[in-house]
């Protein structure tokens, strides 16, 4: 694999709370390649969400490096807001802006951050909204939408910034079971379109079907990683075997 294929390099990433008492991340090393659909699994408290949130510095790591396109974003001199534009993020609880309509939710960042003109931003937003089947809800407010619809809007909101990579933090965990499918379908389509994705999820079906790499974390570290076949078919470490026994 050539080095220009590497999108994000994570080196010895550590995140400690309370001095050194709680080690949420304890020296994580991993590369995310362009086009990867990486799925991070693991028990709760394993550090997988902290890891994901560190990638766009919503969590400030205690030490270690995160190198995006050759630039260490943990350095203090870089324009973090610029880097965050490249990374779309989707949250467990959607975090739509309740005081704005769906369309405004989608266009506010392009308009004020990227200085796109409103017409162009609206047009793009409507196209993307149409792709997730919600064009008719453009004028609605988030409270008027179901959980699954909100999460689809949240995905589109991130896409409107033309990110190079999408981060998903347990995107289906807060949804009623019957709405999980519609969100996973959108994510699958994204993956098929070649979007680089890192997803923290409990949806093993999604990990198996869509992921090209599965990473198992436990105790703030990556315990095992590989293709879905390797991870689900022939898990090596006892901790992963134990975890899979419980969730599958």
């Amino acid at each position: 694999m050539t080095s220009d294929n590497i999108m994000i390099q994570v080196k010895d990433l550590k995140k400690y709370y309370n001095g050194e008492k709680i080690k949420a991340l304890d020296g994580v090393n991993i590369n995310v390649n362009r086009g990867d659909v990486m799925v991070v699994i693991g028990p709760s408290g394993s550090g997988k969400s902290t890891f994901l949130r560190s990638l766009n510095l919503l969590e400030i790591p205690t030490s270690g490096q995160i190198i995006v396109d050759g630039v260490d974003i943990t350095g203090s001199e870089i324009d973090l807001d610029k880097f965050r534009q490249k990374m779309g993020m989707v949250f467990q609880h959607f975090n739509l802006f309740p005081h704005k309509t769906i369309l405004e939710n989608l266009t506010i960042a392009p308009i004020i951050v990227k200085k796109e003109n409103e017409e162009k931003a609206n047009k793009k937003a409507m196209e993307l909204l149409d792709r997730v089947g919600l064009a008719d809800r453009a004028k609605a407010y988030p409270v008027q939408l179901s959980g699954g619809q909100k999460q689809r809007v949240a995905i589109v909101r991130a896409l409107c910034m033309d990110p190079e990579i999408m981060l998903f933090d347990e995107p289906t965990s807060a949804l009623d079971p019957e709405m999980v499918g519609e969100v996973l379908d959108v994510m699958k389509e994204l993956a098929r379109d070649g979007m680089t994705m890192v997803t923290v999820t409990h949806e093993m079906g999604f990990a198996r079907e869509v992921g090209n790499r599965v990473v198992f974390m436990d105790g703030g570290n990556i315990v095992e990683q590989g293709t879905p076949e390797e991870i689900f078919g022939s898990p090596k470490s006892p901790r992963l075997q134990d975890f899979l026994r419980k969730v599958l």
């Binding site: 766009n56 919503l58 807001d81 965050r84 949250f91 004020i112 951050v113 990227k114 949240a154």
Partner: peptide
């Protein structure tokens, strides 16, 4: 909700823009 700030910042908004618009 803290999630509002996180969502805005993750979209590339600055601290000031997040305050003002969100």
């Amino acid at each position: 909700d803290q999630g509002q700030t996180e969502a805005a910042r993750s979209l590339g908004m600055t601290k000031g823009q997040t305050m003002r618009y969100i």
